[in-house]
């Protein structure tokens, strides 16, 4: 089940683990990424907390935790090569996985149709 936030993150939920990244639209808007700072594994994040930082040539932007939970895995490949986020935002360019505190929180996220409408 793939969901979205108005802050241009995508969330893929599998049981009680959510994989999180930024949308292709966001990556395109940011332009060429040159730096990604990921959260540490084991870090507890509340919904809306700063979770990661992405920097393009031009500017830095925050990536927020779309749901509450504990960081259980991060994608070191994008820290090594931030251009993966530009080339494959919803695949190889994922950011981190959260072990969710409350799966029901996901009900508040946008579905694909609502997100598409947001960026139209």
């Amino acid at each position: 089940m793939q969901k979205f936030t108005k802050d241009h993150e995508w969330v893929k939920i599998d049981g009680d683990v959510a994989t999180i990244g930024i949308t292709a639209h966001a990556a395109e808007q940011l332009g060429d990424l040159v730096f990604v700072e990921l959260p540490e594994e084991g870090k507890e994040l509340g919904k809306g907390d700063n979770a990661a930082v992405v920097e393009s040539v031009k500017a830095a932007s925050d990536v927020y935790a779309p749901l509450s939970g504990t960081v259980c895995e991060v994608n070191a490949a994008i820290a090594e090569d931030p251009s993966l986020v530009n080339s494959d935002a919803t695949g190889e360019g994922w950011f981190f996985k959260l072990k969710l505190k409350d799966a029901a929180e996901a009900d508040g996220l946008l579905d694909e149709a609502a997100y598409k409408q947001l960026i139209a």
Binding site: G31, D32, V34, S56, V57, K58
Partner: peptide
């Protein structure tokens, strides 16, 4: 224009 479709890195 801040950038064209090729992007800032390639333009640079």
């Amino acid at each position: 224009p801040v950038q064209y479709p090729r992007g800032i890195l390639k333009e640079h």
